[in-house]
Design a protein around this nucleic acid. Structure first.
Length: 292
DNA sequence: ACCCAGGGTGACG
DNA sequence: CGTCACCATGGG
């Protein structure tokens, strides 16, 4: 991976081609927006950042200084997705997801933001999740320096100090105490970054002690922010997709399902994103066809 | 009025 | 350990 850094602009070259639209809107992140055709913007840490992908290149710009390594890690540039896809082509089922999902990158997001976002995601839909997170940032985040319409994701203390009424007004409903309690746990010393170096089962067990965090939310945090590639978030879409694609429509036993997933090793998380996106795209198409 | 949305909690066997 | 009603809210 090569890059050139000019002022606050980084251009990565000789990378595998990224599909930013798929990556930003496949449901792993909730704060990206397409500002103009092909240009995507989001607040990362303290800075507002825009990204634009070309063939085998990625250009990232910000109003403040960028760390090329940090940005590279965020967009997962050093991982060979073509190698993963090469393996997937040997499986007839996985092969058919490629046209719908190629170009997706699993972003390495900030752990606390990912944690809170996916607690909010429980029994909720992506449009409303996005709206609530936006309101949370406007309420408890800080205005990004030099920007008027962009806010940082709030620090743990900032969320923990909000009243339950304020959290409910944002639209959190019955999740308000979950958010407040978990933010307080992190503020008071629960270390998310240490989970990166723990084993997958230990890290998952630790996350599940947090309020509002069960197996699915824990897997999202482990995959999308803590570098655990074997994590495999199982929501209603994935359960349905796994049943139809790999088990002839029959409900798989826990052992055989886990056996299949663990056979994918550290690539399981990427494969999960491909299947998830494939399931949603094909379901959407079916709905459009039946609507006509 | 009913069902669903990237589920989790608490209670009960 | 597995099951299940219940949980706010908005959109179809």
């Amino acid at each position: 991976m090569k890059y050139t850094l000019i002022g606050n602009r980084i251009e990565y070259t000789d990378i595998e081609t990224i599909d930013l639209a798929r990556s930003c809107f496949c449901g792993q992140a909730f704060r990206w927006k397409e500002t103009e055709s092909g240009v995507f913007g989001c607040v990362l840490g303290p800075a507002y950042v825009t990204a634009c992908a070309g063939e085998n290149s990625l250009t990232v710009e910000s109003s403040s200084t960028l760390d090329p390594m940090q940005i590279s890690r965020y967009f997962d540039l050093e991982r060979s997705y073509s190698l993963i896809e090469h393996g997937m082509k040997k499986d007839a089922v996985l092969k058919q997801t490629l046209p719908y999902a190629t170009g997706i990158r699993v972003f390495a997001q900030e752990p606390f933001e990912t944690l809170i976002s996916f607690i909010i995601s429980a029994n909720n839909n992506i449009k409303r999740i996005t709206k609530i997170i936006d309101a949370l940032c406007r309420t408890a985040g800080e205005r990004v320096h030099g920007e008027t319409e962009h806010y940082t994701f709030p620090a743990p203390a900032a969320i923990a100090e909000l009243s339950l009424d304020t959290l409910r007004d944002i639209g959190l409903g019955y999740r308000a105490p979950y958010i407040k309690d978990t933010a307080a746990r992190v503020r008071d010393g629960f270390s998310l970054s240490e989970l990166h170096n723990m084993s997958y089962p230990d890290a998952k067990r630790a996350l599940c002690t947090l309020s509002g965090v069960g197996p699915k939310v824990a897997d999202c945090v482990l995959l999308f922010s803590l570098g655990h590639g074997c994590a495999f978030p199982m929501d209603v879409w994935m359960k349905r997709a796994m049943r139809e694609l790999f088990f002839q429509g029959r409900e798989p036993g826990k052992a055989e399902l886990n056996g299949l997933i663990s056979s994918w090793g550290e690539d399981a998380g990427v494969i999960q994103q491909y299947i998830f996106h494939y399931a949603r795209e094909t379901e959407l198409r079916a709905q459009n066809e039946t609507a006509v």
